[in-house]
Design a protein around this nucleic acid. Sequence first.
DNA 1: GTTGATCTTATTTCTC
DNA 2: GAGAAATAAGATCAAC
Lengths: 99, 99, 99, 99
Amino acid sequence: MSDIGHNSVNTDTAKRLLSIIERIERLEEERKALGDDVKDIYKEAKSAGFDAPTIRLIIKRRAEDEAKREEREALLETYLAALGQLADTPLGKAAQERF
Amino acid sequence: MSDIGHNSVNTDTAKRLLSIIERIERLEEERKALGDDVKDIYKEAKSAGFDAPTIRLIIKRRAEDEAKREEREALLETYLAALGQLADTPLGKAAQERF
Amino acid sequence: MSDIGHNSVNTDTAKRLLSIIERIERLEEERKALGDDVKDIYKEAKSAGFDAPTIRLIIKRRAEDEAKREEREALLETYLAALGQLADTPLGKAAQERF
Amino acid sequence: MSDIGHNSVNTDTAKRLLSIIERIERLEEERKALGDDVKDIYKEAKSAGFDAPTIRLIIKRRAEDEAKREEREALLETYLAALGQLADTPLGKAAQERF
DNA sequence: GTTGATCTTATTTCTC
DNA sequence: GAGAAATAAGATCAAC
């Protein structure tokens, strides 16, 4: 094995590592910028007379509701898939007619 | 004051609050998406044989203010030196064995 | 099998389950109490002018297997060296500035 | 200032640091031992045919119930205290009669 | 044996 | 700035 070949492998590895690091750093920067934007909105909200903790609570509740809704939808989907399996059976046909 | 006027104030306030909430939610969604992207990169790194915690450490060091990092390391050295100082005392001897 | 016999099996099972649950809860309570004690000591440390994260780091190092720690540090050195290797390339020069 | 005096301050500080560290380590050891005990019980439970995640869930629910119960009691206490304030008023007297 | 998932711990962020 | 809450990180454990 030549040193050149050996070094090129290391260099490729190093480049890949650097690429990984820089991509993460880039994404984290964007993440931070978004976080700052959120802060600005809270500041604006406060100026408009709204209470930050209350807004946080509302957002939290909406997220929870959303999660519940998605859970229900997933359940419905599962149910419909199960029905699909039964579509060729008499029981399935009867069930489908009820939709 | 007319009811119409009164209601329009409330409606405007409600609209503004809703706008604030939705903008925050939108930004948080983007933030979450970026977070998921970061996770994916760490997964990719792992697949390529890199150690995630070490990568995190490198990123932390790159992000960290040089002065701050040196301060932190100096503090660690100070504490370790203080503990080392006890090495000649009976109490310290026992502790020393753990380093 | 008589109903009486059947029920006694269920009762025994329930009792055993309850015993398991209560023993776990008891242990978890003690665990929590110890955790609170630890928190108190960190608070005391802070009051005495010590830096909690640094103390955590020292405790981690003391606990950590010496071999493991050296391995981790060696890995960090390897990664940094790999990145340093790129220092003579255009790509590396840009990265280098961040160290 | 004499070196002796100076060193004694440092030594005292070092001793205090060591004391802090060792107390934390001692507590963490106990905590770990308790954690191992918990694990043993889960193992025992599994051997007896019980499902660990289910047991965890039950314990979680019991803890939540307990928290709620305490919250209700705190609320009741607050209410009773408020009633106490009213004890000398006609309204308070009427309310108390309803208990 | 390796990924996924859960659970705990640690840091950061927010509120008061 | 102190305490509490949320988020992120790490470790451990189960399942495939």
